[in-house]
């Protein structure tokens, strides 16, 4: 982090940067480096064996499948909720707007046991679903429900400010020219909110992929069926297999960064597309 040639106008560069970098290194960078330091001591064949174990592979699969599905559901409902909250007026709107943030404020373990109770075959919602043959608790549907819960504010809160700032003149022009409501939405509004939607989708996806607290109770944790990747790491830690946990964690990190990278690339692609 070199100081650029231009002299700083505001004094205090050294001490501010010093405190920032020291704390960042102590809390985040040095501990994160341990992931790499330890992994390099193990050897590639052991690493490969751990991360390609059948049970581990199925853990990645369940995690990716469920978090992707949850992020898609959140993208759809996130757009609807943001739209309703920005464009319409109705009673208790401010209350509902504040409620969106609940998953950020509610401890994940509490959300986890509440959802499990709600969707078990004797629960308030689960008993009705059970009658029509749908089991939610201790299945992948349950995992997806928990992931929808924790992801919804990400999508709503990234789209809302964009919708609020949207210039209405194009909509009005389209309306005057006789375009239908649906056409106005998909041709004019949707391209405007697409970057924010992608960001929200990516955040919800990445968060769901790493989520533990709210998922672990409702998942049931059956190997090959409802065992998610963070739980595999936890399992390895409980057996004091630190190297195994390390290997699975590195692959999960790679997935998380790939998602963020893919979202970033998509955004660059679309921004080129719209600027032409």
């Amino acid at each position: 982090m070199k100081r650029s040639r231009r002299k700083q106008v505001i004094p205090g560069f050294g001490i501010s940067m010093g405190v920032t970098l020291t704390l960042l290194s102590l809390i985040v960078l040095i501990p994160m480096a341990s992931l790499v330091i330890n992994a390099s001591g193990v050897g590639f064949s052991t690493f490969w064996e751990t991360v390609t174990d059948k049970r581990v592979l199925s853990g990645y699969y369940v995690s990716l499948l469920c978090s992707f599905t949850a992020a898609v559901v959140n993208a759809v409902f996130g757009v609807i909720l943001a739209w309703v909250l920005v464009r319409y007026d109705f009673p208790f709107k401010r209350f509902i707007d504040g409620l969106i943030e609940l998953p950020f404020a509610l401890p994940t373990a509490v959300a986890g046991i509440a959802l499990t109770n709600l969707y078990s075959d004797k629960g308030m919602i689960g008993q009705f679903l059970d009658q029509i043959g749908i089991k939610v608790a201790y299945t992948r549907i349950g995992i997806i429900i928990a992931m929808i819960f924790i992801g919804i504010p990400f999508v709503v809160r990234t789209i809302q400010p964009v919708l609020e700032d949207l210039d209405s003149q194009y909509e009005e022009a389209a309306n005057v020219l006789g375009a239908s409501k649906a056409k106005i939405f998909f041709r004019i509004i949707f391209p405007e909110i697409r970057p924010a939607l992608l960001t929200g989708f990516g955040l919800a996806f990445a968060r769901a992929l790493g989520e533990y607290g709210s998922v672990v109770f409702i998942a049931g944790n059956m190997p090959f069926k409802t065992e998610i990747a963070p739980l595999l790491i936890m399992g390895k830690l409980e057996q004091f297999d630190y190297h195994g946990a390390n290997a699975i964690a590195l692959v999960m990190l790679a997935f998380a960064f790939l998602i963020l990278f893919a979202i970033n690339s998509l955004q660059i692609h679309y921004s080129k597309f719209t600027k032409q």
Partner: peptide, 22 residues
């Protein structure tokens, strides 16, 4: 810390200060 799983957040401290930590 925002992008990674909380389980991994715990794990990095185990790998630093735990039984096999440097």
């Amino acid at each position: 810390p925002f992008a990674i799983s909380p389980i991994i957040a715990g794990l990095v401290f185990i790998l630093t200060f735990g039984r096999i930590g440097w």
